[in-house]
Design a binder for these strands. Structure first.
Lengths: 211, 211
DNA sequence: AGAGAGAGTGTACGAACGTACTAATTAGTA
DNA sequence: TACTAATTAGTACGTTCGTACACTCTCTCT
């Protein structure tokens, strides 16, 4: 036995390649048309496989969706969180994460804009396990922005009168709208509006004339 | 002939009632789960009709979707634009429309939040006639905010250094995010964050300390 | 009152869906 | 080299979709 105590099937190299190819196509498709339009037949057609060939890689459609979300999360972490948090602690990280997000939109990391913004809109109202997962993920993102704002406030880089949760909301809002409008109008220059909004909001929080 | 030169079928009173009942259910369903999940069978089940009974009211599914959008637009006009624009010209109307939108969210006019925000997310990426219609509608909304901002600037109520298009973007962003997050978390109190953001943004544009 | 037509039911068809199987193939290992 | 199991194709089943058509019922108008 090459694998000590493992019930998992031994994956073959070609199967591994197919698996990642399927997930890449799935992320692209889901970012454009949503998780709901993620079907075995659709993916099979785009990849030149048969429906059962695709389905064989996942226990069910539900598992395909969950694996796709997990794969997209890894990409988001690599493309947004990692570079954004590489900035200096405090207001630097707050700016860094916002700029990293806008850059990630501009670079077209996902064909349909932000993968999680698509998810947010698709599962904001419906209930169920995916809704809860999306809500938790969003809470995490917003909570992180709030945490960065709180740190910046403690470091004296933003005004103590600024509520971190409110600042996180006001930064998140233009990021999301930049995503939606740039996709809707197919005009990446809209992202510059988001950039200006972030700059104004952080600048205002930094040197508010309240005294 | 009671109707001079009309090819349209004479609608019976019971048919008229069914028609509006179908559109009401369709708006509710589409605001929650999107236009894509708007099917004859689904509506029939909710209304106690048969699938063909529902389908008989529309030439095709496409027409059902278009009529549903048109009906929602009438409600939006009545619930948001009309009360919002009733305020005093200039910055009053700008505030009025934003507040009317947030109030429309709070009152739960549509079960799934803002009907058009749902559409925006659903058809931001895909191409087609519905995408174009959504894009045009959104351009109209954003253009109206920009026009109100421009008017307010000409009246001297906001700083001349403020770009109307940028201000419109910065007002629209928290409105949208308030919608999505209040639905996602099932917490209407999030709307208060949007209200605060609008207040700050308009206030800042109004008495900017730039000279 | 009677005729005409709109309203709604029931049925049917083809397409696409997820899922569950079998069979053939092929890569990896012993 | 030969075996084993992962990979993939292929097929079939049941459901749901949009659409179409035939049919009954009932409102509305003359």
């Amino acid at each position: 036995m090459t694998d000590h105590m493992s019930d998992a099937p031994v994956r073959r190299s070609d199967g591994e390649r197919s698996h990642v190819a399927i997930l890449e196509a799935a992320m692209r498709l889901a970012s454009v048309e949503g998780l709901g339009s993620l079907t075995f037949g659709r993916l099979a057609g785009e990849l030149g496989l048969t429906k059962s060939g695709v389905a064989a890689h996942f226990d069910s459609r539900q598992h395909l969706q969950e694996e796709t979300i997990a794969a997209a999360q890894r990409i988001f972490d690599r493309e947004v969180l990692e570079p954004g948090l590489a900035a200096q602690e405090g207001i630097g990280q707050l700016e860094g994460v916002c700029e990293a997000y806008l850059s990630y939109l501009e670079r077209g990391v996902f064909a349909g804009g932000c993968f999680f913004a698509q998810l947010l809109a698709e599962f904001d109202a419906p209930s169920g396990p995916i809704h809860d997962a999306v809500a938790d993920g969003q809470r995490g993102w917003l909570g992180m922005l709030e945490g960065l704002a709180e740190t910046a406030r403690q470091r004296g880089e933003i005004d103590t009168a600024v509520e971190p949760a409110q600042l996180a909301f006001e930064l998140y809002a233009p990021l999301e709208l930049a995503n939606y409008l740039s996709m809707l109008y197919r005009d990446p220059s809209i992202i510059e509006r988001g950039r200006a909004a972030v700059r104004d909001t952080i600048g205002r929080a930094g040197h508010a004339d309240h005294g």
